[in-house]
Amino acid sequence: MLMSKKGWIGSIFLVLLIVVGWWMVSPLFLDEVVDEDLPTTIEATTNAEETSNEESPAVSHSGMFVDGDDTHHASGDVTSFYTDSKQWVRFENFEVTNGPDLYTVLVKEGQSTDEGTILGKLKGNVGSQNYRIPDSSSLEEGDRIVVWCKAFEVDFGFAELFHKE
């Protein structure tokens, strides 16, 4: 027997509900672990400096991640440094509550997160990772690096940056 029009619509709605439900709920119990090395230009600099007994690339800013709210937790360290005229931020010992549609955002003092500069999709909710600061931006004391859920406009965690002396 063929399905009625209501049956087809109900089936399509159920499939869509399952897909959207999985997209929203699965990150809550699945971790995306990433262990990214330093960018290759930094590795080359670090290796050359180690052999010549010089210091590794200088850290310009640093901070620690804190929770976005009571439901969304974040921890770990963020540092920034220059190499080959490019500025980077690096997350280490990083962990944040997983969720859908997470991005890494540079937020200037006085800006809301949705006004900030998106550095890219979050590569993983656990582990070390690097993000390039665009040439059109630079880091300043008081800036924040935010893990932001774009779909629901929720901050999952952030690190306020302080100038490293």
Rank of each mutant, 00 (worst) to 15 (best):
D69N: 09
F65V: 03
W22S: 13
V25M: 03
V59N: 02
H73G: 00
D77R: 14
F81K: 04
T71H: 04
S56N: 12
D70M: 08
V19N: 11
S75D: 08
G76H: 04
T40G: 00
A58R: 11
T71E: 06
D31W: 02
K5L: 02
P57Q: 05
L14T: 13
I18G: 12
D84N: 10
K6V: 00
F65C: 08
P27E: 11
F29H: 15
V66D: 08
K6I: 00
L38G: 07
P39F: 01
L28R: 15
E49V: 06
K5Q: 12
T83M: 00
I42E: 10
N53P: 02
I9H: 03
E43N: 13
V25Y: 03
S52V: 13
T79L: 00
V19I: 15
E32W: 07
V15E: 06
L28D: 07
H61W: 01
S11Y: 07
S56L: 14
V25G: 12
D37T: 15
T46V: 09
S80T: 01
G10M: 07
P27L: 10
I12R: 02
F13T: 11
S52L: 13
V34M: 04
T71I: 05
E32D: 13
T71N: 06
V20I: 14
G76F: 03
W8I: 09
E50S: 11
T71W: 02
T71R: 07
V78C: 00
S80Q: 02
D31R: 15
L14G: 05
S26T: 07
